[in-house]
Amino acid sequence: MQVVNTVEKLQHQISEAKKSGLKIGFVPTMGALHEGHLTLVKKAANESDIVVVSIFVNPTQFNNSKDLERYPRDLETDLEALSTVKCDYIFAPAVDEVYPEEDDRQFNFGDLETVMEGKFRPGHFNGVAQVVSRLFDMVTPDKAFFGLKDFQQLAIIRAMTKQLSMPVEIVPCDIVREKDGLAMSSRNMLLSEAQRKNAPLIARTLVESCNFVADTSVQGVKKQVEDAINADTELEVEYFEIVDGYTLQAVDNWDESNYIVGCIAVFAGEIRLIDNVTYKL
C-alpha cells in the first residue's frame, strides 16, 4: 500500500501497471472511512488487479460551507483502515493538485439533477461531476465502484460518464448497514448519543413501508413514512420521494414503473442522513 499525493506520480505507477496488462479498480472517497467504504475496496480487489482509493474532500460539491467545515478528516485513521484490505495506491491530493485552476465547467443532467438532492443542495451534483471526472482522468480506471446509498449520485455519475464518453465501467454496490440498520455514513460519527440511538428509525421505517405497498397508495406510503420519522423528536424529514429508479421522477401509482425506489433525507440536528429502499412490486 503506497500513499501518493501527486497526479504525476500516480499516473506513472498506473501507466507501468497497464503496460503489464493489469486492470485498474478505483474507489473515490472523501475519507472518514467506514466498513461501507472497505466493502467497496474489497469488491474492487475482487474485480481488478490494482486498486486505487482516493481520499479527497471536494470543496466544489458542498453548497453549505458549514457542512464542508464539519466533514470529518483523519487521514491516519483512514490509512489504518485501508491496511486491513487489498489497496495498492491511496491517492490523497491537495486541493490545488486536483484543481490547479478553477473548474468552471457546468454540466447539464436534465431532470436527474432537479429533484431530491439536486433540489435541496443546488450545485452539489455539478461539483460531484467536476471532481469525479477529474479523478477519472487522473486515475484512468477500468472500473469505478460506488455505493447505492447515494442513489441519485450514482445516476448522475453514470450520466456524466456517458456524456464525456469515458471508458469506465460504473459498478454499483449494495448499501452496508450497522447492526441496528442505520446506513453506514461518515456523518454518523458526528451524531450525538441521542441522535445515534434514534437514527435507525429511518431504515426501519423504510423497510416497514414495503409492507404497505399492496394496499396503500403512493401518497399514503409517503405520509406514513414522513409521519413516523417526524414523530421522533431527534429527527426531521427533509424530503421523502418515491421515484422511478431509472429517471428519478416521482411516481403517482405503483404500476408506473417496474423499478420504484423510495429516497429519503433526514436531519438529525444539523447532521443530514440519506437512505433509500427498493419496493418489490
Rank of each mutant, 00 (worst) to 15 (best):
V53Y: 01
Y239P: 06
A94G: 11
E241P: 06
R73D: 08
V3W: 00
K18M: 06
Q224D: 03
L40R: 01
N108H: 15
D103L: 01
S257G: 01
A250R: 14
V277G: 01
I157S: 00
M138V: 11
G262F: 05
S65Q: 15
K19D: 08
K149D: 00
R134M: 09
Q219K: 11
I156Y: 06
M166G: 10
K86Q: 12
P122T: 11
N253L: 07
L40K: 01
Q130P: 04
Y259P: 05
E8W: 03
A81R: 15
Q152G: 00
D252Q: 14
A155T: 09
E8K: 14
A81D: 07
T140V: 09
G36F: 00
L38I: 05
A203C: 07
R187Y: 03
T140K: 15
V57A: 08
N276C: 04
N188M: 01
N63P: 12
H37K: 05
Y89I: 08
T233S: 14
D180Q: 07
A94N: 11
E234W: 04
F109M: 05
N276S: 03
E102Q: 10
T60P: 09
I202D: 00
C173Y: 07
A45C: 05
T278C: 07
D180Y: 03
T278G: 07
V53P: 13
F151G: 08
V176K: 15
A44V: 07
Q130L: 11
Y259I: 04
V27C: 09
P93N: 10
A199Y: 05
V95P: 12
T29C: 08
P122L: 06
G21M: 02
D74H: 13
V7Q: 14
D142E: 12
V85K: 04
T114Y: 02
N258C: 10
T29P: 00
K86Y: 02
V132T: 12
Y259H: 13
Y99N: 13
Q224G: 04
Q11W: 08
L33A: 11
Q13G: 03
Q249S: 08
R73Q: 14
F56S: 13
R70S: 12
G262Y: 02
Y279F: 15
T140C: 15
N253K: 11
I55D: 07
D103W: 00
T114V: 10
E241S: 14
K23R: 14
V237L: 01
D244P: 02
F26C: 00
Y259V: 06
I14E: 05
Q106N: 13
R158P: 04
E208A: 15
